[in-house]
């Protein structure tokens, strides 16, 4: 482990936690063979919190800062979970950023230009995301285009549609207060966005880890040919993956619109990189070797805490977020690849 990256090495634990005798889904792995502790992200997160609390005790280590990070990052986390579900089924969906951008414009435009009520606008926006997922699925499954290429193409198209709909301008007026409140309030000190995140995480955790459909999604993502020969309808599951990622990413866009109170141009794109970094880093955590919801949650908040702390220590360096996220993505993927090499003969 001496060559391991600093970020991910756990602080030397006095006694490594033994693997629980039974894991919840029976999908656990021989952890020691992977070389990374499946809870290392949590240790590192604690270490990061302690580090920045010492460096910036007056700004970082405050309850309000924790609340801001939690509320802001809840949206990143929702996008990351959308991607996690897609990646689990082998749907390498890079159109989630564009889907967010579209949803932001769509939900704002429906309310401000068409005067629709928030629930109707949200429902129609989510419906449009279903269409995006169906189109991605169709191109991948029926036209046999590699997912990354297919979604790169649809990304550009979706972004173009969003620009066209918004007339190239931000939508800042005519967004009802009731809509904005949905992402701004809090209940018992917990921001609404975090509650939404909890509900989505719960649903996806149940779907991926505790239903046959989730198991089949993992099988499809792991080895499509073998899954197909086991009688799994792999095409259908790829569709599911794309639809889930589009709808959930769309919901993240809706939350973002509500939280910001306006619809900017191409606001979704910046979420793509953190989502990939989070999902891949998450695949080394909790259930190493597969994209999983709890791992992604740990990874998103680990990344967010690191970024926030760095921004506070180096407030005049705006590039630090991208630098940190990009490096994390590379490190996470290489760690996952190394773990995979070790287990596969």
């Amino acid at each position: 482990m001496s060559s391991g990256p600093v970020v991910l090495d756990p602080p030397p634990p006095t006694a490594p936690p033994p693997e629980p005798p039974t894991s919840r889904t029976g999908g656990g792995f021989s952890i020691r063979s992977l070389g990374i502790d499946r809870f290392s992200g949590l240790y590192v997160w604690v270490a990061v919190v302690v580090l920045f609390s010492i460096l910036r005790p007056d700004t970082f280590a405050t309850l309000s800062n924790a609340r801001i990070v939690a509320a802001d990052e809840a949206i990143t986390a929702v996008v990351t979970l959308a991607l996690t579900a897609a990646l689990a089924s082998g749907a390498f969906d890079i159109s989630i950023g564009a889907t967010m951008t579209w949803s932001i414009v769509c939900v704002a435009w429906l309310q401000s230009n068409q005067g629709l009520s928030p629930p109707v606008a949200i429902a129609l926006t989510l419906l449009s995301a279903v269409v995006i997922g169906l189109v991605n699925g169709f191109i991948t499954v029926r036209l046999h285009v590699e997912p990354i290429i297919a979604t790169m193409g649809t990304s550009a198209v979706i972004t173009a549609l969003a620009f066209w709909r918004a007339d190239g301008r931000s939508i800042v007026t005519g967004i009802p207060q009731g809509f904005k409140d949905m992402a701004r309030g809090q209940a018992a000190g917990i921001p609404y966005t975090v509650l939404f995140l909890a509900v989505i995480a719960g649903l996806l955790w149940y779907l991926l880890g505790h239903t046959p459909t989730g198991r089949f999604m993992y099988a499809t993502g792991g080895n499509e040919a073998a899954a197909r020969l086991a009688g799994i309808r792999v095409g259908r599951l790829t569709f599911y993956g794309f639809i889930i990622s589009a709808v959930v990413a769309s919901f993240a866009g809706i939350l973002l619109t509500a939280r910001v109170g306006s619809a900017g141009i191409d606001t979704g794109a910046p979420y793509l990189l953190p989502a990939f970094a989070g999902a891949f880093l998450g695949s080394t955590q909790i259930k190493p070797g597969r994209f999983n919801i709890l791992g992604s949650l740990v990874a998103v908040y680990l990344l967010a805490t690191g970024v926030k702390g760095l921004q506070m220590v180096f407030p005049s360096e705006p590039w630090i977020k991208d630098m940190f996220t990009g490096l994390t993505l590379i490190i996470a993927v290489s760690l996952a690849a190394r773990a995979a090499r070790r287990t596969k003969e």
Binding site: T25, G26, G27, G28, F29, H210, T211, P212, R215, F216, Y218, A219, G221, G222, N223, A225, A226, A227, L229, A230, G231, I232, G289, R290, T343, K344
Partner: peptide
């Protein structure tokens, strides 16, 4: 290439072809 899903566990590979016996009233 076609027999096993290497990313899955032994158990998951074994039961892959039919999970219905374990899926009862929306609980796995």
């Amino acid at each position: 290439g076609e027999g096993v899903v290497l990313d899955l566990s032994v158990l998951e590979n074994l039961t892959l072809a039919d999970l219905r016996p374990y899926w009862q009233k929306l609980v796995f």
